[in-house]
Each structure stands twice: as structure tokens, then as C-alpha cells.
Amino acid sequence: MKPALLGLYVLVAGLWLLELASGASGINLAAALADWWHNSASVARIILFEVRLPRALLALLVGAALASSGAALQGLLRNPLASPDMLGVSQSAALLAVCVLYFGYSRLAWFVLPLAALCGAALAVLLLLQLTRRLASAQALILAGIALTALTSALTTFALDYAPNPYALQEVYFWMLGSVANRSNAEVLLALPFFGVGTALLLSCRRCLDALSLGEDTAATLGYPLSQYRWRLIVGVACNVGAAVAVSGSIGFVGLIVPHVLRPLVQSQPGRLLWWSLPGGSALVLLADVLVQHLPGTQELQLGVLTALLGAPFFLYLLLKQRS
């Protein structure tokens, strides 16, 4: 393993421990672990295992899922500005998740919520692939993504407004900006199989993404026709984004920032970038979540606010760089 990649994993481990140590209530982690070891009930143990652990695990998983999806989308669409939230994939997932959650369908089976979000993400990627064939420039595709984002965000608000649950509209911030706070272990278990399948599917397309660097035609002559990998990539992105959105809302810019920061370290090789984006995404979301817990204020900021504060200027920088 390359030292830089090893360093990235060490950073993730450090941030994960820092995330476990962060929280409104000051608890002694060692004492909480000792209570768990001796199987004795205590407040510290409950806080660590029922509040902080699911939050830290979700930050780890959601970050990896969103960043790897961003890297895969950029490779698939050969567009460095592509990411699940910039193109409306996350918001489409949120729309279907909101529909099944607030209209009672999620009670039908445990997998209905993530499956609905997955379908929303898959539909958006399919639509984007069709648009890629018709829109010549990278910027035009981003504009189409912005339109899709605006439409699905408006429909999500509309659905929340008309939901039978009178408190649904209050959760619009969660779905629009995303957060891993106040999640439970049940949500980790809900999303885990989808993250596993999605990440495995994306990693199986590493060589195809490398070949696609030379365009679809040449990739086909190198033994990697997109027709054989397209569905794997779509389902992989949909699983990861769908599961992430189902449990944490639409956390923005992770899928854009992480591949860009890491691309020079992997000499722009999309397959290798996919590997590196997994710990890279975890590190960014863990860092952002630690920061929101330490920022002064009466109420904790939504995680997505911080990633947007970092990501939006970064996106403008990328646009200007592309123009030049």
C-alpha cells in the first residue's frame, strides 16, 4: 500500500476516534468501554453505543459511499464536475425516500426506504446518461443537473408539505442538507447491505473506468465496452447514494470535493481514484461532523451546511479552472 493511502486510512481512524469522543455530553470513553466489557449498564455506555457509535459509523460509511459515487460518476460521464448532488442524483433519491417515509409505505418492509431512495438515484443516473448523449459540453450537463436538483428539491418540499404527518415539513432541512446526528444502529444496519453491494459493484468497474478515459469507442477496443458495465455502475451509484440519502439526507459536495482533491495523488487514474475516494470521503464527512459538533451556537448545524460552505466555493473554482 502506498504511504499516502496508508496515511489517509490513519487519518480516517484518528477522525473516527475523535468523532466518538465528540458530543454534547462529556463522557469518559474508557469508562464507557469498561462498562461494556463488564456488561454493566451506565449512561456513558448508552451514549457511546446508542448515540455516538451509529453517528460515527454513518459518517464513515456515508462519506465513503458519496465520494466513491462521485468518483464513479465523474469517470462514467467523463465529466470532472459530476457528483451525486450536483447532478440531482441525491435529491432524486431524497424525493422517493420522502414519499415512502411520510406516506407510510416504509412500514411495509425494512428495505422499502433504502430501495425507494435507490430507485430515485438510479432514475436520475439513467436520465443523465441519456442527456450526456445529447448535450455536447460538460457545462451543459451540469446545467441539466441543476435543473433536476431544483425540480426534485421542490417536489420533496411539496411531498413533505402534503404528507399526512403534521411534523413532516419540519424535517425538510434534514432531507435538503443532510445530517448523521440522532441516528440509531438500526439505520446503520439498514444501509450497510446497500453500501456493501454498491461499493463492490463500483470497484468491479475500476478497469472499465480507466479505459473510459480514452472515450467509449477506445474503451470497447481495449476490452471494456461500456455496454457491459453501464448497469453495474448505475446500480452501484444508486445503491450507495440511495442508502446514504435514506439514512442521512442529501449531504452535498462530498462526491465533488473528494475525487478532485485526490485525483493528482493517483495521477488521474479513475480506477485508483475509486479506491482512494472511499477513505477520502470518510475523512471529509467525519471531519465536517466533528466540526459541526464543536462550532459555537445554540443549535448544532446540519452537516450539509458545512460541506456546502466548503464545496460551493470549490465548485466555483473548478468552473473557473475549466473555463481557463
Binding site: 478515459s213 472515450g215 477506445t218 488521474s268
Partner: peptide, 25 residues
Amino acid sequence: GYLEQRPQLHWPMQVQQVVALARLS
């Protein structure tokens, strides 16, 4: 092996890495 009319590359990659793509299969 297929040599296209207009070579295209979507990312800034080193020449060596571009050539190495031939060994993917």
C-alpha cells in the same frame, strides 16, 4: 488493436499511463 482518428483523453494523465491502458486486458 484500434488506433482512432482523433485521440482523446478526458483526464490529465502521464504518457506512460496512457500507453499502459493497452495492458488492461
